[in-house]
Amino acid sequence: MNRYLSIFLLCALCACSSSSGEKDLVPPEILPVEEYISPTNCQEYPLGTFLPVACLFTDDVELGSFNLEVHNNFDHHTHGTEAGECRQDPKKDPVNPWIYNKDYKIPAGQSSYEVDLKIPIPEDVDLGEYHFMIRLTDASGWQQLRSVSIRLIEALD
């Protein structure tokens, strides 16, 4: 009896020590491109111009996809991930706020990917404080976030 119990226990122990193979345990990173990253916290953009997005995504194995999003912070609902507060206006209700939300797929097999995009800013949206979010995944499902506050100002003539 004891002999078989030991076999049983041995099975359990073997299972514990078996190697698990290569596992990706590291989230991707959102980095500047040669010390340049855009947008940065508290930057101001006139209506009708472009919001330049520039950064470098890296991962130790393989990148997945990313999402760029803009939503208003007229109700002062949260901080960004960057340190420091930007100038705040009094709270207000949105009338025609700018909503931008787009998912992007990174080509398969990339461990490094440079983003250089210009998002057109509509001419007729509400002015004021917005949040710009970058969300990034790697192929294994790890996620990284970056959130900054930006401000939309009057269109330039």
Partner: peptide, 14 residues
């Protein structure tokens, strides 16, 4: 519930 690499309106798909 597998965490995937795709987004749906900015939310990671599981």
């Amino acid at each position: 519930l597998n965490p995937g690499s795709n987004y749906y309106e900015g939310l990671q798909m599981y």
